[in-house]
Write a protein that binds this DNA or RNA. Structure first.
Length: 586
RNA sequence: CGGGGCGUGGCGCAGCCUGGUAGCGCACCUGCUUUGGGAGCAGGGUGUCGGAGGUUCAAAUCCUCUCGCCCCGACCA
């Protein structure tokens, strides 16, 4: 491609509305332009990158046995009503009405359409498994689109769906997809982690997110520095050392006038926070619900949660444990009425009949502990779980922290970094197939629902994540496999006929050799062209100047490390081909 | 949806408070010079001042409504 004939509108300044590097650089490199909030045009250079990403995804999906198809972007409401998601999905679902007053949505995902297809075409276990995927523009009417391609409303996604005859088969497919995802992101040159994720309301049995580690990520990734354990912060567990065991004398009341935070009480009583039982009262009702308070009963909506004084409750884990969708801390007045004591002095001892108390694992093993006494300015010392109070359930409700022990390996320590979710795979099970009556006949002639999985990759987001991970002050540094061009050929002065002629020859040779080259033949100063080549992030920059031409050489500069070598003109093509082949991994 | 802010040439912005008929840098167009790291000189303005009403002799500026966009929060991939 000749730069002079291309539409590559580079910008010198960052666009005012861009906040993260990938957004700034992709806009400045002339890759994307905003059309509306969260909606972008992909200009030629940007589109080349996205196509490369798509091609890697396509190759690896096919290698793993999946087949590409293409479903409609516009989907009938009818299908969404079958799964109930027409009502559940909310405002994120962009709904449209056609001229006949029929309702449709612009697909944010395609479980309904694919399940409808497969239930119509697949009848027998002999036809299974089936694994299908597509690359498509999706629309989700995000509350707050931001960060360019990282969180658009319209975005390109690879979404895949698998159908198996049984759980064992589905798990095998799931593992194959996980492997394919590892290969995909490795080929793209990304530093990433596959993390165990909370499968949430999607309802599957398990799920992994593929997170690119980058400071601008929107999620926390908890991972082990020694092994490959990784989980998102909503799901992460850790090993937390328990304080030494002690004999626990008889329980004793202690006056703690005016001190209620764990730290203050610990200092006041000269005891470590690790020996404290922190009691939090949660309300499981939706906001503004009315509490039915008996005279001295325990309201059914309230749950007391116990956790060690130095730890924090993970509300997602708690909500999952309790099987509720929403949780919030109870109102002060409700706590006081339920426990009989003011906020700040709550504890599990002596609660009314019927009180629900769940404890984190860290509390169950405590000895000689301290807790609130459900009375003003009073705490209880020498408390022993089980002896002095009862617990309905013990669960992992703790928020993992950096520095905690790894739950999987010996001696590993957990760290936390920000991550960008570029892929997500789910074991869906039979949720959709049952709701949509998608069945096949098994070997015994019985109707069975398909066991499904779904697998997404954000194409644009992956490209943006690659920029987040690979850039410097001058611009983007594309990994070779997703670079828009492999080589930028810069002729320092097109007004020099000798130089222009030599550059033309070199360009033709490169093109004939099958090298993806961007020939900057503009009549610009050399500095401008070099700056643009670097901003665009093209991995290899070939500089041809008058001095070099006299010696019959050009310079080959590596964008990433800045390494520059002089190469004889006749040897350039071979050298470039070799380096490109190496960088593409064979 | 709650809170804050912004819409002025292609991009980044000033002007608005205190109304007087639009400006700066870059980009762009023409010519000449220049060509190894975002050139110099000369000439050129390419603008419904987001839109609609209103106040006024006069509105980018004041008032009302409206649309769009950005940031923080809740939410989500």
């Amino acid at each position: 491609m000749r730069f002079s004939a291309a539409l590559i509108p580079t910008l010198r300044d960052d666009p005012a509305d861009a906040e993260v590097v990938s957004h700034k650089l992709m806009a400045r490199a002339g890759m994307i332009r905003k059309v509306a909030a969260g909606i972008y045009t992909y200009l030629p250079v940007g589109w080349r990158v996205l196509r490369k990403v798509e091609q890697i995804v396509r190759e690896e999906m096919e290698r793993a046995g999946a087949q590409e198809l293409r479903m409609p972007a516009v989907q009938p409401a009818e299908l969404w009503r079958e799964t109930g998601r027409w009502n559940v999905y909310g405002k994120e679902l962009l709904r449209v009405t056609d001229r006949h007053d029929r309702q449709f949505c612009i697909g944010p995902t395609h479980e309904e359409v694919i399940t409808d297809l497969v239930r119509g075409e697949v009848r027998s276990y002999k036809q299974l498994p089936v694994n299908l995927f597509q690359m498509q523009t999706k629309f989700r009417d995000e509350i707050r689109p931001r960060f360019g391609l990282m969180r658009g409303r319209e975005f390109i996604m690879k979404d895949g769906y698998s159908f198996d005859a049984d759980v064992a088969g589905a798990e095998k497919t799931y593992r194959a997809m996980a492997d394919a995802y590892h290969r995909i992101f490795r080929r793209m040159g990304l530093t990433f982690r596959a993390v165990e994720a909370d499968s949430g309301q999607i309802g599957g049995s398990f799920s992994h997110e593929f997170m690119v580690l980058a400071d601008t990520g929107e999620d926390d990734v908890v991972y082990c520095e020694a092994c490959d354990y990784a989980a998102n912060s909503e799901k992460a567990t850790s090993k937390v050392a328990a304080p030494e065991r002690r004999d626990t004398p008889a329980m004793e009341r202690r006056a703690t006038p005016g001190v209620h935070s764990v730290a203050d009480v610990a200092a006041f009583l000269n005891e470590k926070p690790e020996r404290f039982i922190k009691a939090l009262v949660f309300n499981t009702d939706p906001p503004h619900g009315t509490l039915e308070l008996g005279r001295k009963g325990w309201p059914t909506q309230l749950v007391m949660v116990l956790i060690r004084g130095d730890r924090e409750v993970n509300e997602v884990k708690l909500a999952n444990h309790l099987g509720v969708a929403e949780l919030r801390l109870a109102e002060d007045a409700d706590i006081a009425r339920a426990t009989g004591g003011p906020v700040g002095f709550s504890g599990p001892v002596g609660l009314p009949e019927g009180a629900r108390v769940v404890a984190d694992r860290s509390v169950a093993s405590l000895t000689d502990a301290v807790c609130g006494a459900n009375a003003a300015d009073t705490h209880l010392a020498h408390v022993l779980p089980g002896r002095d109070f009862g617990i309905e359930a013990v669960a992992d409700l703790d928020t993992a922290r950096a520095g905690d022990g790894c739950p999987r390996c010996e001696g590993g320590t957990l760290a936390i970094r920000r991550g960008i979710e570029v892929g997500h795979i789910f074991m869906l099970g039979t949720k959709y197939s049952e709701q949509m009556n998608a069945t096949f006949l098994d070997a015994g002639g019985r109707k069975q629902p398909f066991v499904m999985g779904c697998y997404g990759i954000g194409v644009g987001r992956s490209a943006a994540a690659a920029v987040e991970q690979n850039h410097d002050a001058r611009g983007i540094i594309w990994p070779m496999p997703i670079a828009p061009y492999h080589v930028a050929l810069v002729a320092m002065n097109m007004k020099s006929e000798a130089l222009a002629g030599a550059a033309e020859t070199l360009y033709r040779q490169m093109a004939d050799a099958g090298i993806e080259v961007l020939f900057d033949d503009r009549n610009e100063r050399g500095g401008v062209k070099l700056t643009d080549a670097e901003l665009l992030g093209i991995p290899l920059i070939v500089v041809l100047g008058e001095r070099g031409l006299e010696k019959g050489i050009c310079e080959v500069k590596e964008r990433a490390g800045g390494d520059t070598r002089e190469v004889p003109l006749e040897a350039v093509c071979a050298e470039l081909k070799q380096r490109i082949r190496d960088a593409l991994g064979g």
